[in-house]
Design a protein around this nucleic acid. Structure first.
Lengths: 252, 252
DNA sequence: ACAATTTTCAAACGAACGTATGATTGAAGC
DNA sequence: GCTTCAATCATACGTTCGTTTGAAAATTGT
Protein backbone atom coordinates (compact mmCIF):
# COMPACT_ATOMS: atom_id res chain seq x y z
CA UNK A 1 0.00 0.00 0.00
CA UNK A 2 1.29 3.41 -0.90
CA UNK A 3 0.86 6.05 1.71
CA UNK A 4 0.20 9.63 0.72
CA UNK A 5 2.53 12.09 2.39
CA UNK A 6 -0.11 13.22 4.82
CA UNK A 7 -2.79 10.63 5.48
CA UNK A 8 -0.99 7.75 7.01
CA UNK A 9 -3.86 5.67 8.30
CA UNK A 10 -5.98 6.02 5.19
CA UNK A 11 -6.87 2.85 3.33
CA UNK A 12 -6.51 2.78 -0.45
CA UNK A 13 -7.56 0.75 -3.42
CA UNK A 14 -6.54 -2.81 -2.85
CA UNK A 15 -7.15 -2.87 0.87
CA UNK A 16 -10.15 -4.71 2.28
CA UNK A 17 -13.37 -2.78 1.86
CA UNK A 18 -14.29 -0.38 4.61
CA UNK A 19 -15.95 -1.62 7.75
CA UNK A 20 -17.01 0.08 10.89
CA UNK A 21 -13.45 0.46 12.05
CA UNK A 22 -12.40 2.28 8.93
CA UNK A 23 -15.54 4.38 8.98
CA UNK A 24 -14.69 5.36 12.50
CA UNK A 25 -11.15 6.21 11.47
CA UNK A 26 -12.42 8.26 8.55
CA UNK A 27 -14.77 10.10 10.89
CA UNK A 28 -11.90 10.83 13.24
CA UNK A 29 -9.79 12.17 10.41
CA UNK A 30 -12.63 14.41 9.20
CA UNK A 31 -13.21 15.80 12.66
CA UNK A 32 -9.52 16.57 13.03
CA UNK A 33 -9.37 18.21 9.60
CA UNK A 34 -12.50 20.29 10.23
CA UNK A 35 -11.30 21.50 13.60
CA UNK A 36 -7.81 22.17 12.28
CA UNK A 37 -9.22 24.18 9.39
CA UNK A 38 -11.23 26.44 11.66
CA UNK A 39 -8.36 26.98 14.08
CA UNK A 40 -5.62 27.43 11.50
CA UNK A 41 -7.84 29.97 9.70
CA UNK A 42 -8.38 31.94 12.87
CA UNK A 43 -5.03 31.65 14.63
CA UNK A 44 -2.50 30.62 12.02
CA UNK A 45 -0.13 27.67 12.14
CA UNK A 46 2.06 28.64 15.10
CA UNK A 47 -0.84 30.12 17.04
CA UNK A 48 -2.76 26.84 16.97
CA UNK A 49 -1.70 23.91 19.11
CA UNK A 50 -2.47 20.24 18.58
CA UNK A 51 -4.19 20.28 21.95
CA UNK A 52 -6.50 23.06 20.70
CA UNK A 53 -7.32 21.03 17.62
CA UNK A 54 -7.92 17.71 19.34
CA UNK A 55 -9.99 19.37 22.06
CA UNK A 56 -12.22 20.95 19.47
CA UNK A 57 -12.39 17.74 17.43
CA UNK A 58 -13.16 15.68 20.54
CA UNK A 59 -10.41 13.16 19.80
CA UNK A 60 -7.26 11.98 21.49
CA UNK A 61 -4.06 14.00 21.16
CA UNK A 62 -2.16 11.06 19.70
CA UNK A 63 -4.72 10.68 16.93
CA UNK A 64 -3.04 13.47 14.99
CA UNK A 65 0.23 11.61 14.87
CA UNK A 66 -1.46 8.31 14.17
CA UNK A 67 -3.48 9.62 11.21
CA UNK A 68 -1.28 12.42 9.86
CA UNK A 69 2.20 11.89 11.15
CA UNK A 70 2.95 15.39 12.42
CA UNK A 71 1.53 18.86 12.82
CA UNK A 72 3.19 19.95 9.58
CA UNK A 73 1.57 17.15 7.64
CA UNK A 74 -1.80 17.92 9.19
CA UNK A 75 -1.53 21.52 8.02
CA UNK A 76 -0.65 20.43 4.53
CA UNK A 77 -3.56 17.99 4.51
CA UNK A 78 -5.99 20.71 5.59
CA UNK A 79 -4.82 23.06 2.87
CA UNK A 80 -4.85 20.56 0.03
CA UNK A 81 -8.23 19.12 0.99
CA UNK A 82 -9.94 22.48 0.74
CA UNK A 83 -7.99 24.43 -1.84
CA UNK A 84 -8.37 21.79 -4.53
CA UNK A 85 -12.17 22.09 -5.01
CA UNK A 86 -12.01 25.87 -5.02
CA UNK A 87 -9.29 25.85 -7.64
CA UNK A 88 -11.24 23.30 -9.67
CA UNK A 89 -14.23 25.65 -9.60
CA UNK A 90 -11.94 28.50 -10.65
CA UNK A 91 -10.81 26.51 -13.68
CA UNK A 92 -14.40 25.61 -14.58
CA UNK A 93 -15.40 29.27 -14.58
CA UNK A 94 -12.27 30.15 -16.54
CA UNK A 95 -13.08 27.56 -19.19
CA UNK A 96 -16.62 28.92 -19.39
CA UNK A 97 -15.23 32.42 -19.86
CA UNK A 98 -12.96 31.14 -22.62
CA UNK A 99 -15.88 29.40 -24.39
CA UNK A 100 -17.99 32.55 -24.26
CA UNK A 101 -15.49 34.87 -25.92
CA UNK A 102 -12.17 34.61 -27.68
CA UNK A 103 -10.12 36.17 -26.23
CA UNK A 104 -12.04 35.88 -22.92
CA UNK A 105 -13.42 39.06 -21.40
CA UNK A 106 -11.09 40.31 -18.70
CA UNK A 107 -13.89 40.79 -16.18
CA UNK A 108 -14.90 37.16 -16.65
CA UNK A 109 -11.35 36.04 -15.98
CA UNK A 110 -11.22 38.22 -12.87
CA UNK A 111 -14.57 36.92 -11.67
CA UNK A 112 -13.42 33.32 -12.17
CA UNK A 113 -10.49 34.12 -9.94
CA UNK A 114 -12.46 35.79 -7.16
CA UNK A 115 -15.91 34.30 -6.93
CA UNK A 116 -15.15 30.68 -5.96
CA UNK A 117 -13.18 31.91 -2.96
CA UNK A 118 -15.61 34.53 -1.73
CA UNK A 119 -18.51 32.14 -2.07
CA UNK A 120 -16.84 29.09 -0.54
CA UNK A 121 -19.13 27.23 1.80
CA UNK A 122 -18.63 24.65 4.45
CA UNK A 123 -20.42 21.34 4.20
CA UNK A 124 -23.50 22.60 6.02
CA UNK A 125 -23.83 25.42 3.51
CA UNK A 126 -22.73 28.08 5.96
CA UNK A 127 -19.97 30.59 5.53
CA UNK A 128 -16.66 28.88 5.33
CA UNK A 129 -13.47 29.80 7.08
CA UNK A 130 -11.73 28.59 3.95
CA UNK A 131 -11.34 32.07 2.41
CA UNK A 132 -9.56 33.26 5.53
CA UNK A 133 -7.39 30.15 5.56
CA UNK A 134 -6.43 30.70 1.94
CA UNK A 135 -5.68 34.34 2.58
CA UNK A 136 -3.61 33.48 5.60
CA UNK A 137 -1.44 30.86 3.91
CA UNK A 138 0.46 33.52 1.97
CA UNK A 139 1.47 35.27 5.16
CA UNK A 140 2.45 32.15 7.07
CA UNK A 141 6.12 32.38 7.96
CA UNK A 142 8.35 29.38 7.81
CA UNK A 143 8.32 28.75 4.10
CA UNK A 144 4.72 27.54 3.92
CA UNK A 145 3.92 29.79 0.98
CA UNK A 146 6.87 28.45 -0.99
CA UNK A 147 5.75 24.92 -0.30
CA UNK A 148 2.01 25.33 -0.72
CA UNK A 149 1.51 27.80 -3.52
CA UNK A 150 3.27 25.80 -6.25
CA UNK A 151 1.38 22.72 -5.09
CA UNK A 152 -2.07 24.24 -4.84
CA UNK A 153 -1.90 27.18 -7.19
CA UNK A 154 0.86 26.60 -9.71
CA UNK A 155 -1.27 24.97 -12.39
CA UNK A 156 -4.15 27.36 -11.78
CA UNK A 157 -1.82 30.34 -12.07
CA UNK A 158 -0.48 29.02 -15.38
CA UNK A 159 -4.02 28.70 -16.78
CA UNK A 160 -4.99 32.18 -15.62
CA UNK A 161 -1.80 33.60 -17.07
CA UNK A 162 -2.66 31.99 -20.39
CA UNK A 163 -6.06 33.66 -20.39
CA UNK A 164 -4.59 36.99 -19.40
CA UNK A 165 -2.12 36.77 -22.28
CA UNK A 166 -4.97 36.38 -24.69
CA UNK A 167 -7.10 39.04 -23.03
CA UNK A 168 -4.19 41.52 -22.89
CA UNK A 169 -2.06 40.72 -25.94
CA UNK A 170 1.46 42.08 -26.07
CA UNK A 171 1.91 42.41 -22.32
CA UNK A 172 5.02 40.59 -21.04
CA UNK A 173 4.30 37.47 -19.05
CA UNK A 174 6.23 38.75 -16.04
CA UNK A 175 3.91 41.77 -15.86
CA UNK A 176 0.90 39.51 -16.07
CA UNK A 177 2.33 37.47 -13.20
CA UNK A 178 2.64 40.65 -11.16
CA UNK A 179 -0.90 41.49 -12.15
CA UNK A 180 -2.04 38.14 -10.86
CA UNK A 181 -0.14 38.68 -7.61
CA UNK A 182 -1.75 42.11 -7.20
CA UNK A 183 -5.14 40.58 -7.90
CA UNK A 184 -4.52 37.89 -5.30
CA UNK A 185 -3.57 40.70 -2.92
CA UNK A 186 -6.88 42.44 -3.47
CA UNK A 187 -8.70 39.23 -2.69
CA UNK A 188 -6.57 38.32 0.33
CA UNK A 189 -6.86 41.67 1.98
CA UNK A 190 -10.58 41.61 1.57
CA UNK A 191 -10.72 38.17 3.15
CA UNK A 192 -8.45 39.11 6.05
CA UNK A 193 -9.92 42.50 6.75
CA UNK A 194 -13.45 42.08 5.49
CA UNK A 195 -14.83 41.49 8.97
CA UNK A 196 -12.96 44.43 10.48
CA UNK A 197 -13.81 46.83 7.64
CA UNK A 198 -17.38 45.55 7.54
CA UNK A 199 -17.81 46.38 11.20
CA UNK A 200 -16.31 49.83 10.64
CA UNK A 201 -18.64 50.61 7.73
CA UNK A 202 -21.66 48.99 9.34
CA UNK A 203 -21.95 46.41 6.55
CA UNK A 204 -21.79 42.72 7.17
CA UNK A 205 -21.12 39.81 4.92
CA UNK A 206 -24.35 38.42 3.64
CA UNK A 207 -25.06 36.44 0.57
CA UNK A 208 -26.35 39.49 -1.27
CA UNK A 209 -23.26 41.36 -0.26
CA UNK A 210 -21.01 38.53 -1.33
CA UNK A 211 -22.25 39.04 -4.87
CA UNK A 212 -21.70 42.79 -4.58
CA UNK A 213 -18.26 42.17 -3.19
CA UNK A 214 -17.38 39.85 -6.03
CA UNK A 215 -18.47 42.55 -8.48
CA UNK A 216 -16.60 45.24 -6.61
CA UNK A 217 -13.39 43.24 -6.57
CA UNK A 218 -13.89 42.15 -10.16
CA UNK A 219 -14.24 45.78 -11.23
CA UNK A 220 -11.12 46.81 -9.35
CA UNK A 221 -9.06 43.87 -10.64
CA UNK A 222 -10.23 44.19 -14.25
CA UNK A 223 -9.45 47.88 -14.36
CA UNK A 224 -6.21 47.35 -12.48
CA UNK A 225 -4.98 44.74 -14.93
CA UNK A 226 -5.83 47.01 -17.87
CA UNK A 227 -4.08 49.91 -16.19
CA UNK A 228 -1.01 47.79 -15.62
CA UNK A 229 -1.05 46.64 -19.25
CA UNK A 230 -1.33 50.22 -20.52
CA UNK A 231 1.43 51.50 -18.28
CA UNK A 232 3.80 48.76 -19.38
CA UNK A 233 3.06 49.55 -23.00
CA UNK A 234 4.04 53.18 -22.40
CA UNK A 235 6.84 52.74 -19.93
CA UNK A 236 10.35 51.36 -20.23
CA UNK A 237 10.91 47.64 -20.52
CA UNK A 238 12.06 45.77 -17.47
CA UNK A 239 15.69 44.88 -16.97
CA UNK A 240 16.57 41.27 -16.49
CA UNK A 241 19.13 39.36 -14.49
CA UNK A 242 19.70 41.85 -11.69
CA UNK A 243 21.40 40.83 -8.47
CA UNK A 244 19.49 40.33 -5.33
CA UNK A 245 19.78 42.85 -2.50
CA UNK A 246 21.15 41.75 0.85
CA UNK A 247 18.69 40.34 3.31
CA UNK A 248 19.05 40.37 7.04
CA UNK A 249 17.82 38.05 9.74
CA UNK A 250 18.21 34.31 9.91
CA UNK A 251 15.89 31.61 8.69
CA UNK A 252 14.31 29.72 11.56
CA UNK B 1 6.85 60.64 35.27
CA UNK B 2 4.36 59.20 32.84
CA UNK B 3 5.23 55.88 31.32
CA UNK B 4 4.29 55.15 27.72
CA UNK B 5 2.45 51.90 27.30
CA UNK B 6 5.47 50.19 25.91
CA UNK B 7 8.78 51.69 26.93
CA UNK B 8 8.89 51.29 30.64
CA UNK B 9 12.48 52.19 31.32
CA UNK B 10 12.56 55.19 29.00
CA UNK B 11 13.29 58.56 30.63
CA UNK B 12 11.13 61.54 29.69
CA UNK B 13 11.10 65.29 29.94
CA UNK B 14 11.63 66.22 33.58
CA UNK B 15 14.00 63.38 34.37
CA UNK B 16 17.70 63.99 34.84
CA UNK B 17 19.59 64.45 31.60
CA UNK B 18 21.04 61.37 29.95
CA UNK B 19 24.14 59.80 31.36
CA UNK B 20 26.09 56.71 30.51
CA UNK B 21 23.60 54.52 32.25
CA UNK B 22 20.72 55.87 30.29
CA UNK B 23 22.73 55.77 27.08
CA UNK B 24 23.43 52.12 27.78
CA UNK B 25 19.78 51.44 28.43
CA UNK B 26 18.80 53.25 25.24
CA UNK B 27 21.31 51.18 23.29
CA UNK B 28 19.90 48.01 24.78
CA UNK B 29 16.37 49.02 23.81
CA UNK B 30 17.45 49.83 20.25
CA UNK B 31 19.20 46.49 19.85
CA UNK B 32 16.14 44.68 21.10
CA UNK B 33 13.85 46.66 18.80
CA UNK B 34 16.11 46.11 15.77
CA UNK B 35 16.41 42.37 16.36
CA UNK B 36 12.70 42.06 17.09
CA UNK B 37 11.81 43.90 13.91
CA UNK B 38 13.88 41.58 11.75
CA UNK B 39 12.57 38.44 13.41
CA UNK B 40 8.93 39.49 13.60
CA UNK B 41 9.11 40.44 9.91
CA UNK B 42 10.48 37.05 8.96
CA UNK B 43 8.71 34.70 11.34
CA UNK B 44 5.67 36.56 12.63
CA UNK B 45 4.68 37.14 16.22
CA UNK B 46 4.07 33.55 17.38
CA UNK B 47 6.92 32.13 15.37
CA UNK B 48 9.46 34.38 17.07
CA UNK B 49 10.52 33.71 20.65
CA UNK B 50 12.02 36.14 23.14
CA UNK B 51 15.04 33.89 23.26
CA UNK B 52 15.48 34.31 19.52
CA UNK B 53 15.28 38.06 19.86
CA UNK B 54 17.61 38.44 22.83
CA UNK B 55 20.12 36.05 21.28
CA UNK B 56 20.20 38.14 18.11
CA UNK B 57 20.30 41.39 20.06
CA UNK B 58 23.06 40.10 22.33
CA UNK B 59 21.21 41.03 25.51
CA UNK B 60 19.82 39.24 28.52
CA UNK B 61 16.44 37.53 28.29
CA UNK B 62 15.04 39.54 31.16
CA UNK B 63 15.91 42.80 29.40
CA UNK B 64 12.74 42.52 27.34
CA UNK B 65 10.51 42.48 30.38
CA UNK B 66 12.56 45.14 32.08
CA UNK B 67 12.43 47.60 29.18
CA UNK B 68 9.12 46.71 27.50
CA UNK B 69 7.02 44.83 30.01
CA UNK B 70 6.03 41.85 27.89
CA UNK B 71 6.34 40.29 24.48
CA UNK B 72 3.06 41.89 23.41
CA UNK B 73 4.27 45.34 24.36
CA UNK B 74 7.54 44.76 22.57
CA UNK B 75 5.66 43.88 19.39
CA UNK B 76 3.55 47.00 19.66
CA UNK B 77 6.67 49.11 20.25
CA UNK B 78 8.36 47.67 17.17
CA UNK B 79 5.37 48.39 15.01
CA UNK B 80 4.74 51.94 16.19
CA UNK B 81 8.39 52.91 16.03
CA UNK B 82 8.69 52.03 12.39
CA UNK B 83 5.24 52.61 10.93
CA UNK B 84 5.03 56.20 12.10
CA UNK B 85 7.82 57.63 9.90
CA UNK B 86 6.55 55.76 6.86
CA UNK B 87 3.06 57.11 7.41
CA UNK B 88 4.44 60.58 7.95
CA UNK B 89 6.21 60.32 4.60
CA UNK B 90 2.94 59.11 3.05
CA UNK B 91 1.17 62.22 4.33
CA UNK B 92 3.94 64.47 3.07
CA UNK B 93 3.63 63.00 -0.42
CA UNK B 94 -0.16 63.24 -0.23
CA UNK B 95 0.02 66.90 0.72
CA UNK B 96 2.38 67.51 -2.16
CA UNK B 97 -0.05 65.78 -4.51
CA UNK B 98 -2.86 67.97 -3.18
CA UNK B 99 -0.82 71.11 -3.69
CA UNK B 100 0.00 70.17 -7.27
CA UNK B 101 -3.55 69.65 -8.46
CA UNK B 102 -7.06 70.19 -7.16
CA UNK B 103 -8.46 67.59 -7.03
CA UNK B 104 -5.19 65.64 -6.72
CA UNK B 105 -4.30 63.28 -9.54
CA UNK B 106 -5.29 59.75 -8.63
CA UNK B 107 -1.92 58.33 -9.62
CA UNK B 108 -0.18 60.77 -7.29
CA UNK B 109 -2.43 59.66 -4.44
CA UNK B 110 -1.69 56.02 -5.23
CA UNK B 111 2.02 56.69 -5.42
CA UNK B 112 1.96 58.49 -2.08
CA UNK B 113 0.40 55.36 -0.63
CA UNK B 114 2.85 52.90 -2.12
CA UNK B 115 6.25 54.49 -2.51
CA UNK B 116 7.21 55.21 1.11
CA UNK B 117 6.67 51.55 1.96
CA UNK B 118 8.47 50.03 -1.00
CA UNK B 119 11.41 52.35 -0.56
CA UNK B 120 11.71 52.04 3.21
CA UNK B 121 15.29 51.75 4.34
CA UNK B 122 16.98 50.70 7.48
CA UNK B 123 19.30 53.05 9.26
CA UNK B 124 22.34 51.90 7.28
CA UNK B 125 20.52 52.70 4.04
CA UNK B 126 20.03 49.03 3.12
CA UNK B 127 16.80 47.32 2.26
CA UNK B 128 14.50 47.31 5.22
CA UNK B 129 12.49 44.42 6.53
CA UNK B 130 9.89 47.02 7.45
CA UNK B 131 7.76 46.49 4.32
CA UNK B 132 7.46 42.81 5.12
CA UNK B 133 6.64 43.59 8.74
CA UNK B 134 3.94 46.02 7.69
CA UNK B 135 2.53 43.52 5.24
CA UNK B 136 2.55 40.81 7.86
CA UNK B 137 0.76 42.76 10.55
CA UNK B 138 -2.57 42.49 8.75
CA UNK B 139 -2.35 38.74 8.70
CA UNK B 140 -1.27 38.35 12.30
CA UNK B 141 -3.90 36.34 14.17
CA UNK B 142 -4.90 37.21 17.69
CA UNK B 143 -6.48 40.59 17.09
CA UNK B 144 -3.27 42.44 16.27
CA UNK B 145 -4.74 44.03 13.16
CA UNK B 146 -7.70 45.38 15.10
CA UNK B 147 -5.38 46.84 17.67
CA UNK B 148 -2.65 48.16 15.41
CA UNK B 149 -4.37 49.43 12.29
CA UNK B 150 -6.53 52.07 13.96
CA UNK B 151 -3.49 53.20 15.94
CA UNK B 152 -0.97 53.31 13.10
CA UNK B 153 -3.15 53.80 10.06
CA UNK B 154 -6.48 55.31 11.13
CA UNK B 155 -5.51 58.94 10.63
CA UNK B 156 -3.60 58.18 7.45
CA UNK B 157 -6.57 56.29 6.05
CA UNK B 158 -8.85 59.22 6.80
CA UNK B 159 -6.55 61.59 4.92
CA UNK B 160 -6.26 59.27 1.94
CA UNK B 161 -10.03 58.81 1.88
CA UNK B 162 -10.42 62.57 1.80
CA UNK B 163 -8.15 62.81 -1.22
CA UNK B 164 -9.91 59.94 -2.93
CA UNK B 165 -13.27 61.66 -2.42
CA UNK B 166 -11.98 64.69 -4.20
CA UNK B 167 -10.23 62.70 -6.92
CA UNK B 168 -13.31 60.51 -7.51
CA UNK B 169 -16.28 62.73 -6.71
CA UNK B 170 -19.64 61.11 -6.15
CA UNK B 171 -18.30 57.73 -5.11
CA UNK B 172 -19.66 56.57 -1.72
CA UNK B 173 -17.17 56.68 1.07
CA UNK B 174 -17.66 52.99 1.86
CA UNK B 175 -16.59 52.11 -1.68
CA UNK B 176 -13.55 54.30 -1.34
CA UNK B 177 -12.70 52.50 1.87
CA UNK B 178 -12.94 49.16 0.04
CA UNK B 179 -10.79 50.68 -2.67
CA UNK B 180 -8.20 51.57 -0.08
CA UNK B 181 -8.32 48.06 1.37
CA UNK B 182 -7.86 46.57 -2.11
CA UNK B 183 -4.95 48.93 -2.71
CA UNK B 184 -3.36 47.87 0.56
CA UNK B 185 -3.85 44.29 -0.56
CA UNK B 186 -1.95 44.93 -3.77
CA UNK B 187 0.91 46.39 -1.78
CA UNK B 188 0.92 43.70 0.89
CA UNK B 189 0.92 40.80 -1.48
CA UNK B 190 3.78 42.32 -3.37
CA UNK B 191 5.72 42.73 -0.16
CA UNK B 192 4.98 39.22 1.05
CA UNK B 193 5.48 37.45 -2.23
CA UNK B 194 7.90 39.76 -3.97
CA UNK B 195 10.88 37.60 -3.12
CA UNK B 196 9.17 34.41 -4.20
CA UNK B 197 7.78 35.85 -7.40
CA UNK B 198 11.04 37.60 -8.10
CA UNK B 199 12.89 34.30 -7.92
CA UNK B 200 10.31 32.68 -10.19
CA UNK B 201 10.59 35.42 -12.82
CA UNK B 202 14.33 35.76 -12.50
CA UNK B 203 14.06 39.38 -11.34
CA UNK B 204 15.35 40.60 -8.05
CA UNK B 205 14.61 43.65 -5.99
CA UNK B 206 17.05 46.36 -6.75
CA UNK B 207 16.73 50.05 -6.42
CA UNK B 208 16.00 50.51 -10.11
CA UNK B 209 13.36 47.87 -9.88
CA UNK B 210 11.87 49.42 -6.77
CA UNK B 211 10.99 52.45 -8.85
CA UNK B 212 9.52 50.25 -11.58
CA UNK B 213 7.58 48.33 -9.00
CA UNK B 214 6.19 51.51 -7.50
CA UNK B 215 5.06 52.55 -10.97
CA UNK B 216 3.62 49.15 -11.71
CA UNK B 217 1.61 49.09 -8.50
CA UNK B 218 0.64 52.72 -8.92
CA UNK B 219 -0.71 51.95 -12.39
CA UNK B 220 -2.68 48.96 -11.15
CA UNK B 221 -4.08 50.81 -8.12
CA UNK B 222 -4.97 53.98 -10.04
CA UNK B 223 -6.80 52.05 -12.72
CA UNK B 224 -8.39 49.77 -10.14
CA UNK B 225 -9.80 52.65 -8.13
CA UNK B 226 -11.22 54.22 -11.28
CA UNK B 227 -12.72 50.92 -12.32
CA UNK B 228 -14.30 50.53 -8.92
CA UNK B 229 -15.69 54.07 -9.07
CA UNK B 230 -17.17 53.49 -12.53
CA UNK B 231 -18.73 50.18 -11.57
CA UNK B 232 -20.37 51.66 -8.48
CA UNK B 233 -21.77 54.49 -10.58
CA UNK B 234 -23.40 51.94 -12.88
CA UNK B 235 -24.28 49.24 -10.44
CA UNK B 236 -26.86 49.05 -7.69
CA UNK B 237 -26.37 50.90 -4.45
CA UNK B 238 -25.25 48.97 -1.46
CA UNK B 239 -27.67 47.84 1.20
CA UNK B 240 -27.08 48.97 4.72
CA UNK B 241 -27.59 47.50 8.14
CA UNK B 242 -27.56 43.84 7.16
CA UNK B 243 -27.11 41.08 9.71
CA UNK B 244 -23.81 39.39 10.16
CA UNK B 245 -23.48 35.79 9.04
CA UNK B 246 -22.64 33.10 11.57
CA UNK B 247 -19.00 32.55 12.32
CA UNK B 248 -17.48 29.38 13.64
CA UNK B 249 -14.45 28.69 15.73
CA UNK B 250 -13.52 30.23 19.05
CA UNK B 251 -11.31 33.18 19.82
CA UNK B 252 -8.01 32.16 21.44
C1' DA C 1 33.33 57.31 50.12
C1' DC C 2 28.95 55.72 50.54
C1' DA C 3 24.03 55.14 49.66
C1' DA C 4 20.56 54.88 46.31
C1' DT C 5 19.05 53.83 41.89
C1' DT C 6 19.27 51.80 37.39
C1' DT C 7 20.53 48.24 34.46
C1' DT C 8 21.98 43.78 33.49
C1' DC C 9 22.59 39.09 34.67
C1' DA C 10 21.93 33.93 35.69
C1' DA C 11 18.72 31.02 37.09
C1' DA C 12 14.32 29.26 37.95
C1' DC C 13 9.34 28.69 37.64
C1' DG C 14 4.98 26.96 35.88
C1' DA C 15 2.84 26.14 31.70
C1' DA C 16 2.55 24.48 27.22
C1' DC C 17 4.38 22.42 23.24
C1' DG C 18 4.91 18.27 19.61
C1' DT C 19 5.99 13.69 19.62
C1' DA C 20 6.23 9.00 21.32
C1' DT C 21 4.82 4.80 23.84
C1' DG C 22 2.64 1.00 26.06
C1' DA C 23 -2.02 -0.25 27.30
C1' DT C 24 -6.76 -0.78 26.17
C1' DT C 25 -10.67 -1.18 23.24
C1' DG C 26 -12.98 -2.39 19.11
C1' DA C 27 -13.23 -4.66 14.75
C1' DA C 28 -11.76 -8.05 11.28
C1' DG C 29 -10.27 -12.60 9.93
C1' DC C 30 -9.95 -17.49 10.57
C1' DG D 1 -14.01 -18.49 20.39
C1' DC D 2 -9.55 -17.09 19.54
C1' DT D 3 -5.92 -14.55 17.20
C1' DT D 4 -4.55 -10.64 14.79
C1' DC D 5 -4.86 -6.04 13.53
C1' DA D 6 -6.54 -1.20 13.65
C1' DA D 7 -7.86 2.61 16.26
C1' DT D 8 -8.00 5.09 20.41
C1' DC D 9 -6.45 6.24 24.93
C1' DA D 10 -3.78 8.05 29.09
C1' DT D 11 0.48 9.23 30.14
C1' DA D 12 5.08 10.73 29.75
C1' DC D 13 9.16 12.78 27.69
C1' DG D 14 12.34 16.39 26.39
C1' DT D 15 12.14 20.84 24.86
C1' DT D 16 10.72 25.47 24.71
C1' DC D 17 8.05 29.18 26.10
C1' DG D 18 7.14 33.97 28.66
C1' DT D 19 7.64 35.79 32.95
C1' DT D 20 9.72 36.49 37.44
C1' DT D 21 13.27 36.99 40.98
C1' DG D 22 17.29 37.82 43.68
C1' DA D 23 22.07 38.99 42.90
C1' DA D 24 25.62 41.61 40.78
C1' DA D 25 27.43 45.35 38.26
C1' DA D 26 27.27 49.96 36.72
C1' DT D 27 25.88 54.51 37.29
C1' DT D 28 24.05 58.49 39.67
C1' DG D 29 23.46 61.45 43.54
C1' DT D 30 24.87 63.20 47.96
Amino acid sequence: MIETPFERGAPFAGTPSSGESRARAAATRERILDAAERLFAEHGFAGTSLRDITAEAGVNLAAVNYHFGSKDELFLAVVIRRFEPVNRRRLEMLEQAERQADPPRLEDVARAFVQPVVEARDEEGGWSVLPKLMARVVGEPGGWAEKILPLTFGAVAARFLGSLERALPGVPRADLLWGLVFSAGVLSHYLLLGDLIGRITGRWMEEAQAAETVERMTAYITAGLRGLAVSQAHGGREKTGGKRGKQKGKKR
